[in-house]
Design a protein around this nucleic acid. Structure first.
Lengths: 148, 148
DNA sequence: AGCTAATTGAAAATCATTCTCATTTAATAA
DNA sequence: TTATTAAATGAGAATGATTTTCAATTAGCT
């Protein structure tokens, strides 16, 4: 197949995949395309629908497999919502944090790390070694604020 | 029923429930007890098992209902793990963040907010209004570090 | 002790995720 | 190009997690 929806994000995914000896399949690139062009976080079902729109019938299992792999590769990030649901957002690069609009689920990256400058000494005095963190901001984007 | 496993945490839960006109059932207090005495985050199944140990046969649906309610009330917090699983931890009070040991899933609270002092101006320039945040630290606790 | 709305239990229903395995395909080399 | 081959996919079954339903029970009042 291999349609021509190539853009920066697809090229990036291609490269990461090639580096790891993984195949750049139409399904995988379509997942990137759907996530990136939506500009917001999507549920697994929404991603599946988007990919089906591009490629026709596509197995749901493939979407799950792709998302899991992409998360390991740092190409997508799983986000958690207050209502218990979760979604995925495109996420070029390793250490990026996300701000999610609670109305439209739009995702905005910010490379500055809010916990970078935090003083962990009180935690580490208890013997804890902090190795990683998950930070996600919730709020309202301009569009949704105006619409309200 | 109403066994006597009353401690600070159960009293706290009782009070929050009463304030909202909700009933302090044996099942609800047992959920608090199990979570608090474990000192770590537990899966829904583990909480169910713990409650069954205390009370005998207990419906799983009740555990789900209780955890959802307790999360709204700020009595428990849902935590997300890197492997996609999630768990619940006791969480007295509203704004507490959690540090999770990736080995034993032990939970340590810290009231200092790591993003409190973060300068959101670059985000807010784009029209974003930050309203809430989810922060979770991962690492290794003293015991697990020594055991390794 | 009795009343009543809230809560529970049990099982069915629903929804999400993973697995299996036969078929297809991307990447590589001839 | 074409052939080769390991990797990836699709379809559906299997599994697992969560929610719903509704009759029976119970906590929190008189």
């Amino acid at each position: 197949m291999m349609k021509d929806f190539e853009c920066t994000q697809e090229s990036y995914a291609r490269e990461v995949l090639r580096e790891k000896g993984l195949k750049s399949t139409a399904q995988r690139l379509a997942v990137v395309h759907v996530l990136h062009t939506s500009g917001k976080s999507l549920s697994v079902g929404e991603i599946h629908d988007g990919v089906k729109d591009m490629l026709g019938a596509t197995g749901l299992a493939t979407i799950y497999r792709t998302l899991e792999m992409f998360e390991d590769l740092g190409i997508v990030k799983r986000l958690h919502f207050p209502d218990g649901r979760h979604g995925y957002a495109f996420s070029q690069g390793e250490h990026v944090h996300h701000m999610v609009c609670v109305d439209c689920r739009g995702v905005f990256d910010f490379p500055e790390c809010p916990v970078e400058s935090f003083d962990y000494s009180s935690i580490e005095k208890q013997g804890f070694r902090v190795k990683d963190h998950f930070v996600q901001l919730f709020g309202q984007c301009l569009k949704c604020a105006e619409a309200a």
